[in-house]
């Protein structure tokens, strides 16, 4: 069975073709880069719309399959930016109607976990999912993917991006901060906010910018910002590992490519006797393959959606998603309203 997955929750338009054996036949990513400032949702959606046709075509060509050979379409139904979600959902519905093949909407956060499990062989990990749009610690418990900890304000990737932008570093901000941080020597104290299992990054961001305006060395600030926010992430992940007694930690999301974060997580895992698993970089970031694969999992375990039901859910929570491929149970009602 072949599925074409469409990802479009934020600045990445991703198209992937995946087989039910878990083989990724192709995946194509087109990334919207704003001229200045952050993502403008409508501009990003316009970008996606303009790229969709050629990206789908390219993905099919790379996979060596024709449109009619596909058995299923899936799309990122949420959570994400409304205009982007709607654009991609519209494309998915059109493809489904055109070919007469079914489609399913997929939860973006769950898809990050599932592609990670597929590619790393992780069975039942605690997942640290960190990107510009999301920051969650996720683990499977009692039939659902539960959120053990999450940000109370901005996502960690957003914290790093905004800092980079405000101090004039070129986009993408995360890698620029990482690069400079390597040359940082002095740790400047920044607010470290862990509330139980939850995190907050607006405090360290504001303070780092304040110190910058006071003339602190940029290298030291990058270093301190990374050390502070990553330590908080690792601490909450460690709490989830201790609580659930799981032996694997999976890292996902765009920030997963940060080497310092990997190093810190690895250190924590070593001390606890857990193993750290990180998918290849291109599948940590948003991509179409993860949507295709999760769509296959859902469809093959009985999740069905009529075209008119295939709408987006901007605030779709991770723990609202039914995961019959892990519980073995399927509700008779469609799981997506």
């Amino acid at each position: 069975m072949l599925c074409l997955g469409l990802e479009g929750t934020a600045h990445t338009l991703g198209v992937g073709v995946v087989s039910s054996e878990g083989k990724i036949l192709s995946h194509v990513s087109r990334v919207y880069r704003p001229e200045k400032g952050g993502i403008h949702p409508r501009e990003a959606a316009r970008f996606h719309a303009s790229q969709l046709k050629s990206a789908v075509k390219e993905a099919l060509e790379k996979a060596g399959v024709g449109l009619r050979e596909l058995d299923l379409f899936s799309f990122s139904a949420g959570p994400g930016l409304g205009p982007c979600l709607r654009t991609v959902a519209t494309a998915a519905r059109a493809l489904s109607v055109l070919t007469g093949k079914p489609l399913v909407g997929v939860n973006h956060c769950v898809a990050h976990v599932e592609i990670g499990r597929l590619l790393t062989g992780a069975e039942d990990p605690v997942t640290l999912y960190v990107s510009g749009g999301n920051t969650q610690v996720i683990a499977f418990e009692e039939g659902r993917y539960r959120v053990f900890g999450e940000t109370l304000d901005i996502p960690v990737g957003n914290c790093l991006d905004v800092f980079a932008r405000e101090v004039g570093l070129p986009p993408p901000g995360g890698p620029a901060v990482e690069e400079l941080a390597r040359r940082g020597r002095r740790y400047l104290p920044l607010p470290y906010v862990v509330k139980g299992m939850d995190l907050s990054f607006s405090g360290p961001l504001t303070e780092a910018l304040r110190r910058y305006r006071q003339g602190a060395a940029l290298e030291d600030l990058c270093f301190s910002l990374q050390e502070t926010v990553f330590a908080a992430l690792v601490e909450v992940t460690e709490r989830a590992v201790a609580h659930t007694e799981k032996g694997e930690v999976l890292l996902a999301g765009g920030v997963a490519s940060n080497r310092r974060l990997r190093e810190m997580l690895g250190e924590m895992c070593r001390a606890r006797g857990a193993s750290l698993l990180v998918p290849p970089r291109e599948f940590c970031a948003d991509n179409g393959a993860m949507i295709g694969w999760t769509g296959l999992l859902a469809y093959r375990h009985g999740v069905r959606q009529r075209v008119e039901e295939a709408v987006v859910r901007q605030r779709w929570r991770t723990d609202e998603v039914e995961v019959p491929w892990r519980t073995g149970r399927v509700k008779t009602k469609p799981s997506h309203p």
Partner: peptide
């Protein structure tokens, strides 16, 4: 002590 955190933190 947590090895993943810098001492100053």
């Amino acid at each position: 002590p947590k090895g993943y955190r810098v001492k100053e933190l």
